[in-house]
């Protein structure tokens, strides 16, 4: 019996910056799901904290003619931006890997194969978004805390590069589910940990080839843009800009 091949889905995340309140729920949800090494104070001081998804905080001046550090304290604003691997279509990290540890799979994911990685760190150097993290040390958990580790996710050892996978273990579960039920993906079949926890609903995830999916609709929102898209990386994360009631004063991009 011939097995009918369904078209592969293409996974896309949409980040609505207008909903994001910077609460960090996604950050810890990701660490809990993906066995990310503990970020101690020493690790932070070495500037080597692993946060596969992090919240960028930008100071924004309320006065278009002045820089944020020049205005009065009452006239400052902040924008939060959750940032994770953009799963670029034309990923700068991929061609520089001498051992093909990072490559593009047919679901549009930029995949990191841990047991190929030899730790050259070329990929992290070439990443435009600073979302790749290198294990400078063997990750250590106290023995009891290892009980929490997710058995679906590899613990990366010293000398290995790691990054956001769009929770590929959950995608694999979804693959098996749709195969078993012999149907196409629909919204909710696959939910990465960050999307699942996000209390404000700022994150959405789905198959953009499916026109009925939430991400396909959101991708056409007036506010959509992609990070550093002018550099041609073709990110698969779509951002929806934060609405600024004082945008009329914002002349910088006109």
């Amino acid at each position: 019996m011939a097995i009918e091949r369904k078209p592969e889905p293409k996974w896309v995340m949409v980040v609505d910056a207008d909903r994001c309140s910077g609460c960090q729920a996604c950050v810890v949800a990701c660490q809990a799901e993906n066995n990310v090494p503990l970020n101690t104070d020493a690790i932070f001081n070495q500037k080597r904290a692993h946060e596969w998804i992090r919240i960028e905080r930008y100071w924004v001046s309320g006065d278009p003619d002045k820089r944020p550090d020049e205005v009065d304290f009452k006239n400052l604003k902040v924008k939060f931006l959750p940032l994770m691997c953009q799963q670029c279509e034309n990923a700068p990290c991929e061609p520089v890997c001498p051992v093909y540890a990072t490559y593009h799979n047919d679901q549009g994911l930029n995949v990191q194969v841990y047991n190929r990685c030899i730790g050259t760190r070329y990929c992290a150097n070439n990443c435009n978004y600073n979302v790749r993290f290198f294990n400078f040390w063997e990750p250590v958990w106290p023995e009891t805390l290892r009980n929490q580790l997710n058995p679906d996710v590899t613990v990366r050892s010293r000398g290995i590069m790691e990054k956001c996978t769009f929770c590929v273990q959950r995608i694999r579960r979804g693959d098996r589910l749709v195969k078993r039920e012999n149907r196409d993906f629909k919204d909710g079949d696959v939910t990465p940990a960050c999307v699942q926890s996000c209390p404000t609903g700022a994150l959405a995830f789905g198959n953009i080839k499916d026109e009925k999916s939430a991400v396909a609709k959101m991708a056409h929102d007036d506010r959509h843009y992609r990070l550093l898209e002018e550099q041609g990386t073709g990110p698969n994360v779509i951002y929806l800009k934060k609405v600024d009631l004082h945008a009329a004063e914002d002349k910088a991009h006109e």
């Binding site: 932070f44 500037k47 843009y225 006109e254």
Partner: peptide, 16 residues
Amino acid sequence: GSVVPIDFSNKVKVTN
């Protein structure tokens, strides 16, 4: 300061 910030704030113009 761990990473170089990507200034995104002026990429598209949006009003309410």
